[in-house]
Write a protein that binds this DNA or RNA. Sequence first.
RNA 1: GGGAGUGUUCCCGAGCGGCCAAAGGGGGCAGACUGUAAAUCUGUUGUCUUACGACUACGAUGGUUCGAAUCCAUCCGCUCCCA
Length: 376
Amino acid sequence: MYHLLKQEGRARRAEFTTVDGTFQTPAFMNVATAAAIKGGISAHDLVDLKCQIMLCNTYHLHVRPGDNIVRDQGGLKGFTGWRGPTLTDSGGFQVFSLASLRTIKEDGVTFQSHVDGRRIFMGPEESMRIQSNLGSTIAMAFDECVSNPAEYDYAKRSIGRTTRWLERCKAEMSRLNALPGTLNPHQLLFGINQGATFDDLRIQHMKDIATLDLDGYAIGGLAVGEETQVMYHIIEQVEPFMPKDKIRYLMGVGTPANIIEAVWRGVDLFDCVMPSRNARHGHLFTWSGIININNAKYQNDSNPVDSQCGCPACQHYSRAYLRHLLKANEMLGMRLAVQHNLYFYNTLMEKIRAALDAGDFEAFRNQYATLLATRI
RNA sequence: GGGAGUGUUCCCGAGCGGCCAAAGGGGGCAGACUGUAAAUCUGUUGUCUUACGACUACGAUGGUUCGAAUCCAUCCGCUCCCA
């Protein structure tokens, strides 16, 4: 249930209520692909990192340990111990990213497991059944994510198929939610807008899926090869055709600047592997810009990563220590780095919401969009 | 005392007459990363120079050769075997 609290231009401040709790938007989902944030972060840690909603992946959990196991363990909630809302990605992105191992047909997609190489078939119904077993708060539609630049004709055929898949997802989800013994009988379904970088395809597809009255709408297929300005342009084109009373999710995005710019253009929800992956590689976000903690200039630096940060790493440890841990390949190094970046992202969202509440998000955007992308 | 090895660029280690500033690791330095096949990947790593190139380098010294990290002699260091 989406409840709009305040608006500034196209930017929206709202809250989203689910059976697993309410979260404040704009929000960033913390990515726990295989039911854990990479870098040794537990569900319990996520609470301290100001996480509101956790994202897991259908494909990965289907392959290992198997969605039936997760269901038997009480779904993602029982399995991971995360009590708040969860969203599961549908496996659509894996279809795209495992490009060399797949065949796409009308029924669904056959692709090879990256774990043991076995052939796996996944279509809309399979994806919904797996997500139902995972018991997530929100299930994503099974879509096709096309890489950019894309051929117009291919993108056009792809959105037709993605729409038909969406209709099948909706039907299957209704059926599953009504079954006795279903883990989460109130599981929500979000549709996904596609159409590569073509305005007319994007708009047409958005209009098509808007008629299906889903619980939320995502923009997918962005930040997959096109220029950043093209991404912003597509959001601007599609946004007017997204239902005003539904939550909007920009999938897989992005940098702090991307998020600020997308909120500015009317997006409510985000997820991205960047804070966790980049943290593992020593790339840390701060309120003064981006640093690479591996750089030699930090080897004897007794300051915290960011003196303005309240995360567990910045509260107790120096740049010199964190750099040493990462260099020495100590698990603690990754853990602290990931904690820092996730705390940064969740705090960024908090600040965005505060700015919207105060009615000065434009000033916030002017102050931070460029600054946070600066390398220092 | 006798015999057999061995010494390579920051480290380990390949090379056995020219294509060697010298494979491959490691380490160092830097970069990338956007619904996670990612604790991954890429570049770089003798000095000087923008570059062409020049110079210094394969334990030391001397030699053979048009040419030596590579062959020979002596010396120095280390390892192993026999007494």
